[in-house]
């Protein structure tokens, strides 16, 4: 017995169309796809994120992982170690003392890795940008950021919107060949 696979597809067919073998309902369907698309499909639906919270936004990140917003349904599961994470959500103010540690976390993540900057502080220093002597004005001074989510702090919906935007980018990720660097998106 073959387990019935729902019609529609479990793998995306994106480039040039795929070949479907088996037409009777209940038959296992075969899809042809590019290796890259298959890998990206996997990456897109399992963006494990690093539990990296420094300040206020960390509480909203926690609520986003909580039962109401439940980012688990997007395949996002918090990881304690940067080695296991695909996505770094910079949630909160980064001070000059913390910046080098944050960069080290980013360096420890395995490629491919993505960065979402959550909240005004990580974007550009937020309410501390003008008068504070100890706050870094934007984490993008230390490593590249893919998505900026504005807000102080952003609502969980805003963060999820940023992640959905990021998934578009993950889908287009080129594992092989030359990778063009996309411009950052403001979600």
């Amino acid at each position: 017995m073959v387990d019935p696979v729902p019609s529609g597809s479990i793998c995306p067919v994106r480039t040039g169309g795929g070949l479907t073998v088996g037409s009777r309902p209940g038959d296992c369907e075969l899809h042809l796809t590019a290796v890259e698309d298959f890998l990206n499909w996997g990456k897109e639906h399992s963006l494990f994120y690093l539990l990296f919270a420094t300040a206020c936004c960390g509480i909203e990140l926690m609520q986003t992982g909580g039962p109401r917003y439940d980012v688990d349904r997007l395949g996002m599961i918090p990881r304690a170690s940067p080695r296991q994470a695909d996505l770094l959500i910079v949630a909160g103010t980064i001070t000059h003392k913390m910046a080098s540690r944050a960069k080290r976390l980013w360096e420890q993540m395995a490629e491919p890795r993505w960065v979402v900057s959550m909240g005004s502080c990580a974007n550009a220093g937020g309410p501390f940008s003008k008068f504070s002597y100890s706050v870094l004005n934007g984490i993008d001074k230390h490593f590249p950021v893919d998505i900026y989510v504005p807000g102080c702090p952003p609502r969980p919906e805003a963060l999820i919107d940023g992640v959905i935007e990021l998934r578009e980018r993950v889908r287009r990720w080129q594992t092989l060949g030359v990778r063009p660097r996309d411009a950052a998106v403001i979600a």
């Binding site: 420094t54 300040a55 206020c56 909160g92 103010t93 001070t95 003392k97 913390m98 540690r101 309410p127 501390f128 008068f131 504070s132 002597y133 100890s134 706050v135």
Partner: peptide
């Protein structure tokens, strides 16, 4: 400690009394 020192007390010396309320949030 000091990884989240945002110099909030110093910022208070630049702002009027009601303007400091948002910083107490943080």
């Amino acid at each position: 400690i000091g990884y989240l020192h945002r110099s909030i007390e110093k910022i208070g010396e630049y702002l009027e009394f009601p303007q400091f309320v948002p910083y107490t949030d943080r």
